[in-house]
Design a protein around this nucleic acid. Sequence first.
RNA 1: CGGGGCGUAGUUCAGCCCGGUUAGAAUGCCUGCUUUGGGAGCAGGAGGCCGCUGGUUCGAAUCCAGCCGCCCCGACCA
Length: 491
Amino acid sequence: MADKITSRDINYSEWYNDLVLQSGLAEYAAVRGCMVIKPHGWAIWENMKSILDKMFKDTGHVNASFPLLIPKSFLEQEEGHAEGFAKECAVVTHYRLKTDPDRKGKLIVDNESKLEEELIIRPTSETIIWNCYKNWIQSYRDLPILINQWANVMRWEMRTRLFLRTSEFHWQEGHTAHATKEEAVEETVKMLNVYADFMENYMAVPVIKGVKTINERFAGAEDTYCVEALMQDGKALQMGTSHFLGQNFAKAFDVKFLSKEGKLEFAWATSWGVSTRMMGALIMAHSDDNGLIIPPKLAPLHVVIIPIYKNEEQLKTITEKADAIMKALKAKNISVKFDDSDQNKPGWKYAEYELKGVPVRIAMGMRDIENNTVEIARRDTKEKSVVSADGVDAYIENLLNDIQQNIYNKALSYRNNNLHEVNTWDEFQIQIEKGGFISAHWDGTGETEEKIKEETKATIRCIPLDAKEESGVCVYSGKPSERRVLFARAY
RNA sequence: CGGGGCGUAGUUCAGCCCGGUUAGAAUGCCUGCUUUGGGAGCAGGAGGCCGCUGGUUCGAAUCCAGCCGCCCCGACCA
């Protein structure tokens, strides 16, 4: 057996890269920092999208599309936002090329096509959207505006990793406008809950909901809420964010409305997003050295049937029986593929579908035909069992639910076993080396947060929403603290 | 932006130090036969601007210079 994938124990980071490449999720593009998301990867992303899209619509949102290019002056409008994103913007300066007079067949930038105002490729769309909202909002009757867009964005990252951080990435960004602060805050939290629901119940990744510290806040936000998850190597990953933007963008773009009382007021804003980074989370939360483990609710293919035969006649017999099973499975909305290709032996196929993360495999040979059985193997535990062919559709339906639950439980117990309350600085330093979340008291200052980061590389992932009031002393400075916050080394 | 690595067949790489037949292997691909319950075997075959440009030389994948690209490790980030 060829070892295509580095073991997690040897090098987690190589394991991740090998897995993404070998399982056919994605590959490196010819452009630095960019990736090609291949059909298998895109199919999973599409499943994520369609579930989330429905959740957004069920909570009253509608989709729209705004331009890829944003005038530089728009980005300058909101000061914090501008400073935050300035360093990572791709800039369009010209609109034309021409043939190089000195080198036949080559193209050069036509300097006569220089743009009067540079355009930037959107790193996020608050500015161009709020420029529109200025025209759309005059009265409280125009509010709320609840818009989402599915889009690609670009941030010129210095260091990139497949799915986790690429220069171009795909995401959704919700941008809402409200008449009151309360309503905007409510929206921010509502969408955070939608994200958490999706991550736990579909991705099978347990998350912790919280609020970011000022240092970690989104550029231009009043408050950034987030969902944080723990990966198998003990590092944390921010899986999504939801921002309460206050009136910052309304003021920057002069978006005012006339209230019921006849007063002119600035609108209140939120924005919230999740990206293809979730693909990275999905991979790192569940998969093993044999390949991907995809929760059934997101798997592009639920079941693969592999026939084992010695001749055409046997294949025909097996195919007939497999057809009946497939029909029954499809009737239950379970996707199934019959792989009767003659190119590879069954053993090769087993390994291949395990690599790709298909949750359930059925093997059928003549032995099964004689006994009216099939062999069923589940991807998450790799357990095999021989079951009666009668009612196999119901068996698999249950099995898929069981797999979904089992994957989640496993991730949850890992997360819980790696979340430690720590009360002294010595303990903190020892524990952070072991990985996982650390729940500790913090004095609330940016200085302490910075020092901890410098000394341990750990950041405050969030102040958990369910953090209980508990007086204590800061693990670093010894100053008083009212609640514990979550620390971790993060992606 | 610093530090390191790599660029040779579709893919992974050897060859380079020490220049010299027609540039190799594995794997994948094509043809045929035998196989098929955990990554099959045999036989035959196709496949290369040796990253680019220039230099040294009778002769360059190999030596020299410049350039380009990508990956990995650190500082910034969803």
